[in-house]
Design a protein around this nucleic acid. Structure first.
Lengths: 337, 337
DNA sequence: GGCATCAGCCGAATCGATTCGACTGCGCTC
DNA sequence: GAGCGCAGTCGAATCGATTCGGCTGATGCC
């Protein structure tokens, strides 16, 4: 079933069918209705490929996610969901591309093969080859997170440095003098993962400013590592009475280890950080934390991308989010251990 | 940059470039290399839309996921990841469509607009309009889960009835006489959600066969509901000493409520069920459970779909998985409460 | 009544690839 | 040396849509 068949059955030319559908030229009411009837009963829909070829746009967005999708954090998952929602609202389809490495077939196909009108890049590194690739291919893009030199491009990011600083402030206000930062995996930070770096910087700055003692721990992104990390803290650093973290995936293990050490939250041990609300509320007791507004970020990223596609020469938009710390029940005044 | 430009720069016709790339006709080594050089330095890739139009296939698969993607369970997430992996291995792109309701724009666009060569449908209901729609549109599809009349179509499913039966057997063998089934949300089961129905049937059958007392509880898909559900069990059904569940998302709450009730696992309370391995291992102590092999399922679904696209008239393939129960540490002999 | 205007429709070109038939040399055979 | 086969190449048709220019007939105006 194609436009020619519709034209034949309605006794008009193909161009008339096209104009009746798009409304870009006048079509008499009677023929318009006749065409519509034929379409309704045949269930016709314009072929996406043909339309994309002629129009030069695909009405689809690419979403480039980390390759190990099985280990997506809730934050990332929420983000993916919000991108899909926003795209669906704009009548755009979403093509998923699991890419992270340098030479990636899926990414190349989508970007260079013009399968999409623009891409959203997740899990951006400070120096990210995908950004370079999208630029050189002339493919509009928005990054979630910033590269080291984020000028002249669209992005949406969370201000991890400021937020971790505020966490330290909050803990210091409560009297904590020895504070740990549980960062993301060593390899990730070493590979130039922005949030890891910026959390580290914000932590160092705030610790210095408040005159407290800070210790940073890199921790792989899973429960087991979180458990080991807290065990290490409890064993080797008995002075530490509070942690701030940006490592969501480690939280269940962190929880278990704290419980197993017999430390009550928050009377004996405080914990806070920057995590998706879902996990802040999953924690027990609920986590005082800066809730990453992943839903907003996804919607904003799609919005920026659509605007950027429509007006490639407009100044690129950027948004740095600094969500407030939601006071829940996981932080309290320092107590002697 | 298109094939014509490549042809011009290499001093050959467009068809020669095409044949050099596809290898479907002989091209002399010298011209082949000249063309390849031009392509390498220009970064050319065939336009996906043009190719799709001419070939009549898009080299993309659709993955239809539940609309509330923010609440995807780990099992579903793992499944999505494995589909993406398998598709990437076959050099296929994946289009995500958040669809669940009846009239859905995204689903219609993808299926009727021929944006993909085939679709994988997740979260199938016993009577599912999307199946009907895909059939009437002549779009190849594979379902994850079965409809009520799953004959003559491709699907991959987990045998929840048998597995929950085995869970009951396992618990009965350990001496438990009062066993609860924590099912998925009431609305979901009411809406004809297959696993919910089949778990219910398998539970009833096994309970009758073993002569034990069974009680079923429907529980919304989140930690809070799981907590409430176990509280209810502990309070109103003190005889119950073990539960079997298919509700992953409720597990963290289930865990909390059991702990809060002061019941030790497994010496005072046993728990088992059918869940993704990720969460079985996340549980504390690790959960004795039938691990849903979501990774296999995704790969199998893609494989079935590819075969079905290639040979639409071949008999449809089906696979009913009955993974073994992995003995971990959450079940034990019954004890007096 | 002649002419301009315009609504409404059609035909043909176009997007960028694939593919089929046809053409051209070249080497081989009898 | 005429004829055949084949490797290598080209031109043109094709996929299904959009869109531009042009045609036609009805209407309005002077």
């Amino acid at each position: 079933m194609n436009i020619g068949e519709i034209a034949r059955r309605s006794g008009v030319s193909r161009s008339t069918v096209s104009y009746a559908l798009s409304g870009k030229r006048a079509v008499s009411e009677s023929t318009r209705r006749r065409i519509q009837d034929v379409i309704d009963e045949s269930g016709y829909r314009p072929n996406a490929a043909a339309r994309a070829l002629k129009e030069g746009r695909t009405r689809a967005l690419g979403l480039v996610i980390p390759p190990a999708a099985g280990r997506l954090t809730f934050m990332q998952l929420e983000f993916v969901a919000s991108v899909m929602d926003a795209a669906a609202r704009a009548d755009l389809d979403v093509l998923l591309s699991p890419s992270g490495g340098d030479h990636d077939r899926s990414f190349e196909r989508i970007v260079v093969g013009r399968r999409v009108d623009g891409v959203i890049l997740m899990e951006i590194r400070l120096d990210d080859p995908r950004v370079t690739r999208a630029q050189s291919a002339g493919m509009p893009f928005v990054t979630i997170g910033r590269t080291g030199r984020p000028y002249g491009m669209c992005w949406v990011d969370v201000d991890y440095a400021t937020l971790i600083g505020r966490c330290v402030d909050h803990l210091a206000d409560l009297g904590h003098r020895h504070i740990a930062l549980i960062n993301r995996a060593t390899e990730l930070v070493a590979a130039g993962y922005g949030p890891g770096h910026r959390a580290r910087e914000g932590f160092a700055e705030a610790v210095g400013r408040r005159g407290v003692v800070g210790a940073e721990f890199c921790c792989a992104d899973d429960a087991k590592a979180g458990e080991a990390c807290v065990e290490e803290i409890v064993r080797a650093h008995p002075d530490i009475t509070a942690v701030a973290t940006i490592n969501e995936a480690a939280l269940p293990g962190v929880q278990r280890a704290i419980e197993r050490a017999g430390l009550a939250i928050p009377s004996q041990f405080s914990i806070t950080g920057v995590v998706a609300r879902h996990w802040a509320e999953q924690f027990h007791p609920q986590l005082t934390a800066a809730d990453v507004p992943a839903m907003d970020m996804g919607a904003t990223a799609v919005e920026f991308l659509i605007e950027h596609i429509a007006e490639p020469d407009a100044p690129p938009k950027q948004k740095l989010l600094v969500p407030p710390i939601s006071l829940r029940s996981s932080t309290g005044p320092v107590a002697v251990r």
